[in-house]
C-alpha cells in the first residue's frame, strides 16, 4: 500500500511533465493539441532510433531529441497551428487530430510495430533500487525521473515568473491583443511556447521509453493521461499540473493493486469526478453559490424576485 503510494507519486512526475506541455499550449496559445501524445511518442522513438541505429550515447541522444523536438514545435506553430488558429475553434481540433493520425501511422510505417524500450541501454539504472527503512524498495530510475520533473517544472515556473520572456508569455496568454499593443509580438511568444511544449512532450516520451515500452500507437493514451492531469490539477498553473500528475499517478498505482485494468479506469473515473465537480461548481456559482443552487433545484423558482 505505502509502496504503491510512493510509486504513484514518482509516476506523477512523469505525468506532470507530459501534462505541462499540454497545459502551456492551452494556456498560452489557447488550443488543445490533440497530437500532443503522438509528439511524445515521436520523441521516444526518435531517441530510441538515435541510440539503437545511429549509435549515439544515451545522454547525447536525449539532448539531440529535446533540441529537435523544440525545433519541431516552433516549426509546427509557425507553419501549421498559426494558420489553423485563424480558422476558428473547429480547425485546430481537426488539424491536430489529422496530425495525430499522420504521426501514428507514419511512425508505424517507419519504425514498425515492435514495442521498444530504452531500458536496455541505460545499464543497471533500469533495475537498481534503494532500500528505505521499513523494507520499502524504491527504484532509482523513478526517483531520478521525479527529481528531473520537479527541476524542469520548477525552472519553467521561474522562467515564466521572473524573466522578460515569462512576462511576455503571461501577458500574451491574458490578452494577446493588449500585449501586442505593448510591444510584445504574440506570434513570437506562441512559437516559443510551442517549442517548449513540444520539447516537454519529447522529454515525457523519453521518460516513457526508459521506464516502459513504447509503440507508435501509445500516443492517444498519453494525450488522455496528460489531459486528465491538467484537468485534475487545474488549468494554467504549473504547481497544479504537478499536483494533478501526482494525483493521477497515485490513483493509478492504487487501482493497480486491485487489477491492471482497474488502474487506468480509476484514473478516468477520478478525472470525470473532478470535471463533474468543477462543472457543478460553475453551475452553482451562476445561481449564486451552492445554497442558492440547491434552493433553485429543490424549491420552485422565486418569480416575484425575478420580475422586480
Amino acid at each position: 500500500m505505502l509502496d504503491s503510494l510512493i510509486q504513484g507519486i514518482l509516476l506523477g512526475g512523469y505525468y506532470a511533465v507530459l501534462a505541462a506541455g499540454l497545459s502551456l499550449m492551452f494556456g498560452v496559445v489557447r488550443f488543445i493539441n490533440l497530437a500532443h501524445g503522438d509528439m511524445a511518442v515521436l520523441g521516444a522513438l526518435g531517441s530510441l532510433w538515435l541510440v539503437q541505429s545511429a549509435g549515439v550515447v544515451v545522454p547525447l541522444a536525449i539532448v539531440i531529441t529535446l533540441i529537435g523536438m523544440a525545433a519541431l514545435g516552433w516549426l509546427m506553430q509557425r507553419f501549421i497551428f498559426e494558420r489553423a488558429l485563424a480558422g476558428g475553434f473547429l480547425i485546430p481540433i481537426l488539424t491536430t487530430i489529422g496530425l495525430g493520425a499522420a504521426l501514428q501511422n507514419g511512425m508505424f510505417a517507419a519504425f514498425g510495430s515492435n514495442t521498444q524500450s530504452l531500458g536496455a541501454h541505460i545499464g543497471n539504472l533500469s533495475w537498481s533500487s534503494w532500500q528505505l527503512p521499513g523494507g520499502i524498495i524504491v527504484g532509482q530510475l523513478p526517483v531520478y525521473m521525479f527529481a528531473t520533473a520537479v527541476l524542469v517544472l520548477g525552472s519553467l515556473h521561474l522562467l515564466l515568473t521572473r524573466t522578460a520572456f515569462g512576462r511576455a508569455v503571461r501577458s500574451t496568454s491574458t490578452d494577446a491583443e493588449a500585449a501586442s499593443l505593448c510591444g510584445v509580438d504574440p506570434r513570437k511568444v506562441h512559437r516559443w511556447a510551442a517549442a517548449i511544449a513540444v520539447a516537454l512532450a519529447g522529454l515525457a516520451g523519453i521518460f516513457l521509453a526508459m521506464r516502459a515500452q513504447v509503440t507508435p500507437f501509445s500516443g492517444p493514451m498519453m494525450l488522455i493521461f496528460a489531459f486528465e492531469a491538467v484537468v485534475i490539477g487545474g488549468i494554467g498553473s504549473l504547481r497544479g499540473t504537478l499536483i494533478g500528475g501526482i494525483v493521477l499517478g497515485v490513483v493509478q498505482a492504487l487501482g493497480a493493486l486491485i487489477s491492471p485494468q482497474i488502474s487506468i479506469l480509476a484514473g478516468h473515473l477520478v478525472f470525470l469526478a473532478v470535471l463533474g465537480w468543477r462543472l457543478m461548481h460553475v453551475a452553482a456559482s451562476e445561481r449564486g453559490g451552492w445554497r442558492a443552487a440547491l434552493k433553485a433545484v429543490f424549491n420552485k423558482p422565486d418569480l416575484s424576485r425575478s420580475q422586480a
Partner: peptide, 15 residues
Amino acid sequence: WYLAGIGIVAILFAL
C-alpha cells in the same frame, strides 16, 4: 502509409 496519408490530407484540407 495510407492511413498516414489520410491524416496529411485532412490537415491540408483543414488549413
